[in-house]
C-alpha cells in the first residue's frame, strides 16, 4: 500500500520536474512543476472528437492502457513493504500486464486507418519486443543472486556488499533506466517534443486521441515513469528503515527526473534504424549482469 501512495506522489511531480529541468537547461523560464497535472485535469473535463474510421477498439484502448499501468503498479513493492499483490514470479505478471496495455495502444493506433499512426505502432511493437528480454534477464539474474522469485523477496534480500555487486547495481540501474526510457518513449529512442510525425513513436500513435482518453493516456505515462523510478529505488533501499527509505525514494526519483531532463536537453534522438541495435545492447548488458552474478556465486570454476 505504501508503495502505491509514494508512487502516486512521485507521479504528480515527475514529468513536471523533467520539463522544468529541460527549460532551465535551455535558458527558458518554463512552466510550473504542476503544469502536466493541470493539463491532464483540463483534458478530463473536455469533450472528445473521434475519427469516423475508428471503432469501439479506439474508445476502449485508453481505458485498458491506463488499467494495465495501474495493475502493474499494484505489484511493485517499496523496500520492506510488499506491493498490494506480491507473489512468486510477480515480475512476470508486471511485464505481461504492461504488454496488455501496449497491445491495445498499438491496435488503437491501427484503428484510425492513418498513414502515420501505423508507423508509430509498428515501431512501438518492435522496440518493446526488443526491450523485454533485457528486463527478464535482469530479474532472472537478481532472482539467482537473491534466491527469491518475487519483486519484494528479491529487493528485500539484495545486499550490496562486494565490489562486483556495486558494478552490478550500476549496470542494473542503467538497464532499468533505459527500459524506462524505451517504455515511456523518451529521448535516446523517441523524442516526445518532435514536430514531425514521421520521426515520432509514441506521440504519433495518440494523434487522434482527445479529451478524457488523452488524459488517461498521459496520466498512465506519468505513472509508468514513477513506476520504473520505484524499481530503481528498490535496488538500493533494500531493508533500510522507513525514516531513511522514504526520503531516499524521493531523492532518487528527483535525481532520475533531473537526469532525464538533462539527457533530453543535451542529447539527440538516435536514428530510427539504429534504435533496435541500441535496444539489443541492453539485452547484452543484462547478460553481463547475469554473468556477473554467476561470478559472485562462483559458478565459473
Amino acid at each position: 500500500m505504501l508503495s502505491i501512495l509514494l508512487n502516486l506522489i512521485a507521479a504528480l511531480f515527475f514529468t513536471g520536474i523533467v520539463i522544468r529541468t529541460k527549460s532551465k537547461a535551455s535558458g527558458r523560464k518554463g512552466p510550473g512543476i504542476m503544469q502536466p497535472i493541470r493539463d491532464v485535469y483540463r483534458l478530463f473535463r473536455k469533450g472528445s472528437v473521434y475519427s469516423e474510421t475508428t471503432s469501439f477498439i479506439f474508445q476502449l484502448a485508453p481505458t485498458v492502457y491506463f488499467a494495465s499501468v495501474v495493475m502493474a503498479m499494484l505489484v511493485v513493492p517499496f523496500g520492506k513493504s510488499p506491493g498490494v499483490l506480491s507473489f512468486y514470479g510477480d515480475f512476470i505478471f508486471f511485464a505481461y500486464v504492461l504488454a496488455l496495455g501496449k497491445f491495445f495502444s498499438i491496435i488503437s493506433a491501427l484503428d484510425t486507418g492513418s498513414s502515420f499512426e501505423g508507423m508509430g505502432a509498428s515501431r512501438e511493437a518492435l522496440y518493446s519486443m526488443f526491450a523485454e528480454p533485457a528486463f527478464f534477464i535482469l530479474m532472472g539474474s537478481l532472482a539467482l543472486l537473491s534466491g527469491h522469485t518475487s519483486f519484494q523477496g528479491i529487493f528485500a534480500s539484495l545486499h550490496i556488499g562486494s565490489q562486483i555487486s556495486y558494478a552490478l547495481a550500476a549496470l542494473a540501474t542503467f538497464v532499468l533506466l533505459m527500459i524506462a526510457m524505451i517504455e515511456n518513449s523518451r529521448m535516446p529512442i523517441d523524442d516526445p517534443k518532435t514536430h514531425l510525425e514521421l520521426t515520432m513513436v509514441h506521440e504519433v500513435m495518440i494523434l487522434d486521441n482527445s479529451g478524457f482518453d488523452l488524459g488517461l493516456i498521459l496520466t498512465a505515462g506519468y505513472l509508468k515513469f514513477a513506476l520504473y523510478g520505484a524499481l530503481i529505488v528498490n535496488l538500493f533501499i533494500g531493508v533500510i528503515p522507513y525514516q531513511y527509505a522514504i526520503p531516499a525514494f524521493f531523492a532518487i526519483q528527483f535525481l532520475m527526473a533531473v537526469a532525464i531532463g538533462l539527457i533530453e536537453s543535451f542529447m539527440a534522438r538516435f536514428r530510427m534504424s539504429h534504435n533496435p541495435q541500441f535496444i539489443v545492447v541492453l539485452t547484452s548488458v543484462s547478460l553481463l549482469i547475469f554473468f556477473g552474478v554467476l561470478l559472485i556465486l562462483q559458478k565459473f570454476v
Binding site: K46, S48, V49, L60, V64, A67, S114, F212, D213
Partner: peptide, 26 residues
Amino acid sequence: MVIGLYFFRRYRLKKRNVELGPTWGC
C-alpha cells in the same frame, strides 16, 4: 477496473460535446 473505468468515462462524456471527424492526416 476496465469495466468501471469504461462506464465512468461514458458517464463523463455523456455531458460533454462528442464529435465525429476525419482521421488527422497531418
